[in-house]
Nucleic acid binder design. Structure first.
Lengths: 127, 127
DNA sequence: TGCTAACTACGAAATGATTCGTATTAAATT
DNA sequence: AATTTAATACGAATCATTTCGTAGTTAGCA
């Protein structure tokens, strides 16, 4: 299975399509423009490239293309994480987790959920 | 304080300089070549750019430049993490932590260290 | 002193991402 | 049916990164 390394622009679009697919270029472009000014043909071009890369599928209805995201969010996130671990954390996802935990305030609720998850993991593996 | 977003090539060099500074271009290039073939002037150019960006400082001794890393590993890692959280994890570092925990096997030792850290964090904040 | 080896500086080519203008095509309206 | 509207396709400009060749400079040695 290949590794997905979408660019920042692509990630913005993926995010919207993971929320809801399919969508047209027009819809995506309108949503993007709530954040910042982006030309329609810019969005079109990027989505065409994403289609070429296999990140999106599309179906034609009338003259409009409806785009659907075809890569999983989970897998994409994992690929991006793996890359960061490899390039910036000496290949140690433990180091990454510790650093991520250290930044910002975290609610008791979140901390508890992490603890629960750790317990669950401990049940599964054994080193 | 500005955000550091070193490229992949820059990160490879930073990694070596965080291990030990200062070093010469020649030294870095030799180390890089243990992994893959890289031309000397390629390494030189990248280190010159990193110098321009303020990632490195240098002092001249004879005709040789000795380069020292001038950005903190901790801060750089945090910037890269923050960017990933923002672009791919809906701005939630909690989501990132959970995903990172889920991948790969983790030793009991690591899990315990994470638990300890969580306890420590809980002592500090209160939501 | 003059030659050689090694280093730096600089420019330019190649690649990928981003942006957008223009041409074309298809649907909808008059 | 002709015109207008809105979509797609395509090519080109710009920008950053990566790569490397070449020219120039400096230090050390014969």
């Amino acid at each position: 299975m290949s590794d997905y390394k979408p660019t920042d622009s692509e990630l913005e679009i993926l995010k919207l399509l993971w929320e809801k697919s399919p969508r047209t270029v027009r819809e995506i472009n309108n949503l993007l423009n709530q954040e910042k000014k982006v030309g329609y043909t810019t969005t079109l071009k990027i989505m065409q490239i994403m289609y070429q890369k296999g990140y999106l599928t599309r179906t034609k209805q009338g003259k409009v293309h409806y785009y659907t995201v075809s890569i999983e969010q989970q897998k994409t996130r994992q690929d991006l994480l793996d890359k960061l671990v490899k390039t910036a954390f000496d290949g140690s996802s433990f180091k990454l987790v510790m650093q991520a935990l250290g930044s910002g305030t975290r609610s008791k609720n979140e901390l508890d959920k992490i603890r629960q998850y750790l317990d669950q993991l401990e049940g599964e593996n054994n080193d």
